[in-house]
């Protein structure tokens, strides 16, 4: 077995790639939330003068990728890969953004776990010497997701208390090989040191209004596997950050891990519980690729650059169903992908 593999599911970077820059663009509702000040750009309205919500989402991702690239001062043709995805069928947000940007593209679908999955793969590509610079980009949009997964946006219905609100937001990272000589912007460059690729876990949850419950077992499974593979404790991390479990899923992960004698305390947070305030009436929290994307690329990386957080386990959570599979009575397969970020 390669010396870069640890245990069953974990890879460890030999020469940890750096996150050189990051950039976030969000919609107005996210801008009004508690993390409003941490985003690079807040749109005044979620259509942003585009012809459709799909075009708006694609533009959002393009702006986020362009933003991180501009901040870094790296030239466009130095980027070896763009890697990432979104929630829409055939990854149209990613594909249309890439049409404008022209980077060699690897489109990924990990549902809402795409940020963590893309970061892990970008790290492996760079550490494997297949690339020098890789851009990661993810997006989601409340209205595009509503019309694809649920109901027309103006249709009146009552949301369940366990339902989550899809974030309108795009996030990007620019990763590069360490010691590339790029001037350190806003403090230290956080590094991707390890990644645990998750397995699909499905304990039979069928309720699409309770995605947190569908994803929690997979996230818990990945956290356990990661800790076993790395021979670590939760307390070895300043922060264990799940993607978009929301209130219900976040509590369920703690319940599941308690049964395996792993106790998560104050170091366990969830992006889905951070974006919106209690007054914003979103019920169980936030979701979407943009949810973990903008929290990780915004607030968390800023805290890492300032040295407020040293070692973070970021576990993206994804619900890998489709409206068709749900109508056919299938349960929701969940997945969790973990990356370790250190300064």
């Amino acid at each position: 077995m390669s010396h870069k593999r640890m245990g069953n599911q974990t890879v460890v970077m030999e020469d940890p790639p750096e996150i050189i820059t990051s950039y976030t663009v969000v919609g107005p509702m996210e801008g009004q939330g508690p993390l409003g000040g941490t985003f690079d750009r807040v749109w005044k309205d979620s259509l942003n003068q585009e012809q459709s919500w799909e075009k708006a989402e694609s533009k959002m991702m393009e702006d986020a990728l362009q933003g991180a690239l501009t901040l870094s001062g790296i030239q466009q043709d130095q980027i070896d890969f763009q890697i990432g995805g979104d929630l829409l069928n055939q990854l149209i947000s990613t594909h249309f953004a890439a049409r404008s940007l022209g980077f060699p593209l690897i489109g990924l679908y990990g549902a809402c776990s795409t940020m963590a999955l893309s970061t892990a793969l970008a790290g492996m590509l760079i550490d494997g010497h297949f690339a020098r610079y890789v851009m990661v980009g993810v997006s989601s949009h409340h209205d595009t997701a509503e019309r694809q997964y649920r109901m027309p946006t103006e249709h009146g219905n009552q949301r369940m208390m366990s339902a989550q609100w899809t974030v309108t937001g795009a996030a990007s990272l620019l990763l590069g090989r360490s010691a590339t000589g790029i001037a350190k912007i806003n403090g230290a460059h956080p590094k991707v040191t390890a990644a645990t690729i998750g397995r699909v876990v499905d304990l039979g949850v069928k309720d699409t209004n309770n995605m947190g419950a569908a994803m929690a077992p997979a996230v818990a499974d990945t956290i356990l596997n990661h800790l076993q593979d790395m021979k670590r404790q939760p307390s070895d991390y300043d922060l264990i950050l799940s993607g978009d479990l929301g209130e219900v899923g976040w509590n369920l992960v703690k319940d599941i891990l308690r049964q395996s004698k792993v106790k998560l305390g104050d170091e366990f947070a969830d992006c889905g519980r951070m974006i919106y305030g209690a007054d914003q009436d979103v019920h169980a929290g936030a979701s979407g690729c943009g949810c973990s994307g903008v929290v990780f690329a915004g607030d968390i990386l800023q805290k890492m650059r300032l040295g407020k957080l040293r070692r973070v386990l970021f576990v993206g959570s994804g619900a890998l169903h489709s409206p068709i599979s749900c109508f056919q009575g299938e349960s929701i397969p969940g997945i969790g992908h973990a990356v370790v970020i250190e300064t």
Partner: peptide, 24 residues
């Protein structure tokens, strides 16, 4: 290789019921 988590689907269904907020 079985999942690392020790909870069965039946136990989990009970946990989900416990943690899911009731409609107002």
């Amino acid at each position: 290789r079985s999942p690392a988590i020790g909870v069965t689907p039946q136990e989990y269904a009970d946990l989900v019921t416990k943690e899911t907020p009731k409609p107002t």
